[in-house]
Design a protein around this nucleic acid. Structure first.
Lengths: 218, 218
DNA sequence: ACGAAAGATTAACTCGGTCAACTAAATTAT
DNA sequence: ATAATTTAGTTGACCGAGTTAATCTTTCGT
């Protein structure tokens, strides 16, 4: 009755996890380029074709962790309360993330997270693929925004671009602070201030700071 | 006297162009994945190592054309008149691009450009690398904005994110219109309207359309 | 318990990208 | 002009990512 998970499915999950964790461990030990996928497959005790049945490329062995959070912004918008504006929901969610030291905000100084960030930031091949992941999340957010009644789909697309860019810059900045050795607790107040400043820019525009051609509106 | 270009340098330029154009031609004829770099090298009458001396990866054989425009936004900001606001300069430059049917705006229905876009949009491997190129342009723009006196570097970074996202969405939309067979002249008025709408959003923020948590400011 | 189906393995292969040793051609100096 | 020095290019071999086909094993439905 109900959701029979099945032995087969459970094994697949275990295998997937075994491959991914073996990969990240080996990459962190010896460097992404110094470890071959054959090494990873051997460490995970699977064959090379099996590895590629689970992960389409070597990079995805690491980056799939971002794919899990890909639709987070879209979800926040879709699941917000009826009386809450999309931007308010996203601001609240990001600030919550900072309070919880959610790794996605960059504000996390756990050893595991720091080492993962280090792997990421010291491997050009991984960095190069990151923007593509982020873009997929942007499209999901654009759809979520466009589904709001009375919204212009084009404005939704633009808005999604602004929002995702904002979150990306905020997180990146926090990661940089962590990587130079500061603690999450130490940085937290500044991170909150930056988040508020950034979301204010989102809501009120760049006009004040970077001027525009249009005569001052309103 | 003056800028001796040198035979050697001229030959290098010719070789580079021979490789790139042979690549694009072959890719367009038979598909990116169906053509090997060995095929390209043969068609350009160079060896494989020579090809990779000019272009770091197979994808770059196509995408290097974007690298040339990478710093365009940054340049527009740096070279603007003293009394012109950054956003005004960027808006003007984009609208100029639309008028000139500059391919970078997406509003160009020339056969060559359309075929190039088709190659790009029908090749996942190329699409996946595009965002990384765009991100480099974003960083250049952030630097240009930060160099303006009295500008907060963090605000500059956020602004660059918003601006590049805006231009990317505008261009992509225009490309989509071209790809469904409409003419540049036909689409031009809408494209101009969208550009103005998008830059207005940039200047005035998303607050009006997507709400916010902050009590109405100013 | 048994047949169907899904998952994994082995082995061989293609292709992107690199390296080292060698050759040819352009530049500089005598 | 010609020798000496750089610099670009070629050849051939190599490594590693990713794929394919044939075969074998394990789980699932009845």
């Amino acid at each position: 009755m109900g959701e029979q998970v099945g032995l087969r499915e459970r094994k697949k999950q275990r295998t997937r996890w075994a491959i991914s964790s073996a990969a990240v461990r080996l990459f962190q030990e010896s460097g992404f380029d110094q470890v071959s996928v054959a090494d990873v497959a051997a460490a995970a005790e699977v064959s090379k074709p099996t590895l590629f049945a689970y992960f389409p490329t070597k990079e995805d062995l690491v980056l799939h962790r971002f794919a899990d959070h890909e639709t987070e912004a879209a979800r926040v918008v879709r699941e917000r309360a009826d009386d809450e504006a999309p931007l308010a929901a996203l601001r609240r969610h990001f600030l919550d993330g900072l309070d919880r030291h959610d790794p996605i905000t960059g504000l996390n100084d756990t050893r595991d997270v720091l080492e993962f960030q280090h792997l990421l930031y010291s491997t050009p091949a991984l960095l190069a693929r990151l923007p593509a992941y982020i873009l997929r999340g942007e499209e999901a957010l654009a759809d979520a925004l466009a589904d709001i009644d009375g919204t212009d789909p084009f404005a939704a697309r633009i808005a999604a671009g602004h929002i995702v860019a904002t979150q990306r810059v905020l997180s990146t900045r926090n990661v940089e602070e962590m990587r130079i050795g500061r603690t999450a607790t130490d940085v937290h107040p500044e991170a909150v201030a930056r988040a508020h400043a950034a979301f204010d820019l989102l809501e009120n525009g760049l006009g004040t700071d970077f001027g525009g051609s249009s005569p001052v509106r309103r």
